[in-house]
């Protein structure tokens, strides 16, 4: 039984991988950006777990900057993805403009809270 499950997992993994390579580069860039943001957040959480949450405002600020920008990137990916029927009428540039403005506001808030 175990062998069949590991064989199934491998087969699943392979199919996922091949499907992913089919995605356009733009989206891959966004994915990479999101992964980068999440990793940065994880490192900060690990640090907080070690030393405690002393400048809590700085911790929140750092983590939220990563998470916030990740969320905005995910929104951008959804809106820019051509296979997404919902956002067919939305110009990708428009989505990008929203992304940029939201990020700038996010970073203003982050810097204010950073201390």
């Amino acid at each position: 039984m175990a062998r069949s499950t590991s064989k199934d997992a491998q087969a699943l993994f392979q199919s996922l991988r091949s499907a992913y390579t089919a995605t356009p580069t733009t989206l891959k860039i966004i994915d990479l950006y999101v992964i980068y943001a999440v990793f940065t957040a994880l490192i900060q959480v690990a640090y907080m777990a070690i030393v405690g949450s002393f400048p809590f405002n700085s911790f929140l600020s750092g983590v939220l900057s990563c998470i916030g920008t990740a969320v905005l990137a995910v929104c951008l990916r959804i809106q820019v993805n051509k296979e997404n029927k919902e956002f067919k009428d939305l110009a990708p540039e428009r989505a990008f403009a929203d992304f940029v403005l939201c990020n700038l506001v996010l970073h203003l808030v982050i810097i204010n809270f950073l201390g």
Binding site: L32, Y33, Y36, A37, F39, T40, I43, Q44
Partner: peptide, 8 residues
Amino acid sequence: TFLPFLGF
């Protein structure tokens, strides 16, 4: 913290 940036 800068490592993921480099990774990116």
